[in-house]
């Protein structure tokens, strides 16, 4: 095994383990907003590491630049998706784990 193959293997393996962790998080965590934590963080780094592994494997070819673009778009859009899911959950008032009155949360617009 060459150095490149070892590095590729490590990156892809750790990326897929992180994606597995985020999938378990979607199953285990109690409500929508907690699940979006697992998706936003673990999925972003997981996909980043997997694509990075692919990039290391490809080397400096023309196709390799496209992988950089794919990394960029994935990393930029996943947190935005989780933000939108959270926003919808807040606006629709979806049932939450341990629903408590929000002590220091003011509705936007009620500001003095």
């Amino acid at each position: 095994m060459t150095m490149t193959e070892m590095l590729t293997g490590m990156l892809v393996l750790s990326g897929s383990l992180l994606i597995l962790a985020s999938a378990i998080g979607v199953l285990r965590l109690p409500d929508v907003l907690c699940r979006s934590h697992a998706v936003a963080k673990a999925l972003t780094l997981g996909i980043f590491l997997m694509l990075l592994g692919l990039w290391v494997y490809q080397g400096e070819k023309q196709t390799a630049l496209k992988i950089l673009l794919a990394i960029f778009f994935q990393v930029v859009t996943i947190p935005v998706g989780s933000h939108l899911i959270g926003l919808l959950a807040l606006q629709k008032d979806i049932p939450r784990w341990r629903h408590r009155p929000i002590d220091d949360y003011r509705e936007p617009g009620n500001r003095s």
């Binding site: 962790a21 998080g25 109690p30 907003l33 697992a38 784990w97 929000i102 220091d104």
Partner: peptide, 21 residues
């Protein structure tokens, strides 16, 4: 990411206190 993995694998629902701030 380390935090998320720890929460997902080792913490029970009951120990979480999620809320908005």
């Amino acid at each position: 990411n380390a935090n998320v993995v720890w929460v997902v694998l080792f913490r029970s629902k009951e120990s979480l206190h999620p809320n908005f701030i």
